[in-house]
Design a binder for these strands. Structure first.
Lengths: 231, 231
DNA sequence: AGAAAACGAGAGCACTGCTCTTGACGAATG
DNA sequence: CATTCGTCAAGAGCAGTGCTCTCGTTTTCT
């Protein structure tokens, strides 16, 4: 059904995929803003206007790249998690962190597209939200399972979230069922530390300062694992 | 001396400032990539080529905006810190965090220019590094003073940084004299959580999830203050 | 007063995203 | 088999971009 119908549809699907691939390559060399439909067309031996048969605008092509990116990152994270012993919650958290970082280092411009400043004039459509949650879903699962197994111990003195945050906590709990409010917010904070670190490293904020970046990242994420309370 | 020499130099300084101001306004409405020298020239009633008498390239104009941005953020942070009792280290940390967040919310596109994905094809020159350290210098000072006053208590179970990180810690210690290695890395992690949170909030990652953002941010940064060990 | 430097204006180059029209091809229908 | 209809690549064109070069004019320095 979806695999092949008419010859026309097959070649159309193939060309669409090829356009996205070339665009991804250009993204890797030129960066997000340097993505040019005309350059993609040139590389395909097409005339620029023909591209618009496949992607009605530059933003639609961007949307495709973004969704693919979220899925690629999500899959990398899922694999990193799956490679761990399911009861080793701190290890799984650490593996997920390294999974994010390594994917980002391997695909810096795609990462920038997902977690950097929004492309000017581009408004992410609703299609992207499902894919966007894929990586954080893994994190939620780990914490949820750890909590169910009694393997989440709040650090001493951890402040309790104030009452107005109950609704927000409830929403986040959709990704980590059963987890109490204060753990939810410790996860959220760890999550921002993870992506904040990776962004800093990728966007040059660590230049001339942090050199042994793998080790430093590993240490920082262990620290955040403890802050979550995983054991 | 620097205030005024010839009439020509005065009007040149004035025009240079006006170009940067208009560019900043355009940045605020169009975003980083939408900054157009021709549009700036139009708004000034000049012809586009005349702009190049003042800024040899678009990148040079960007550099000016970036340096101004780092200084504006740094000044906001310094003021936020100065408004606190000097012995209230957790309060000063929290004030700095809110200072960063509020400046970012007030100048989202400038923040994106500083901490978002790098502008494609743009390479930040060395001039920017001095200004870039202004905000983090404040943070270093707080922690350094807190440590000197014996007001930094490591959380129980905090892991010690592995040996290879000694050099990196030494470099960071330039901003927080006297602070031991493990506190240095807890600061670094808190720093990434701070900017990671602000970036997530600004770049839309919290959409439909975190609604009471001020309260959530406050709670998260209190948590990170505890992780640093401030008291 | 004369030389030198700085300046604004204008034309022009190579590039961008995007639109519209034209003519050719393929596939389903009569 | 022949026709019709939707799909397609191509080309020209529009409005915009960063940037360069030249050409008179004006201001400053010697």
């Amino acid at each position: 059904m979806t695999a092949s119908r008419t010859a026309r549809e097959r070649v159309r699907a193939e060309l669409t995929r090829e356009i996205a691939d070339i665009a991804r390559r250009q993204l890797a060399t030129e960066g997000a803003g340097g993505l040019s439909l005309r350059a993609v067309a040139r590389e395909m031996g097409m005339v620029s206007s023909a591209i618009y048969r496949y992607f009605p605008s530059r933003d639609d092509l961007l949307t495709t790249l973004i969704i693919d990116g979220y899925n690629a990152l999500g899959e990398a994270v899922e694999q990193a998690d799956a490679a761990c012993a399911s009861g080793d919650y701190p290890g799984r958290w650490l593996a997920v962190c390294h999974g994010v970082r390594e994917w980002a280092l391997a695909h810096p411009h795609e990462y920038a597209l997902l977690y950097g400043s929004p492309v000017p004039g581009y408004q992410a459509p609703q299609d992207t939200v499902a894919a966007r949650l894929r990586d954080v879903t893994v994190l939620g699962l780990i914490v949820s399972q750890a909590h169910a197994a009694g393997a989440v111990t709040p650090p001493a003195l951890a402040p309790a979230p104030p009452a107005p945050l109950r609704e927000d906590a409830e929403r986040v709990r959709g990704l980590m069922p059963g987890v109490p409010d204060d753990v939810v917010f410790r996860c959220l904070t760890a999550w921002t530390a993870l992506y904040g670190w990776v962004s800093f490293e990728l966007f040059g904020q660590f230049a001339n300062t942090i050199e042994d970046r793998h080790t430093a990242f590993d240490h920082a994420m262990r620290l955040m694992g403890q802050t979550i309370g995983l054991r």
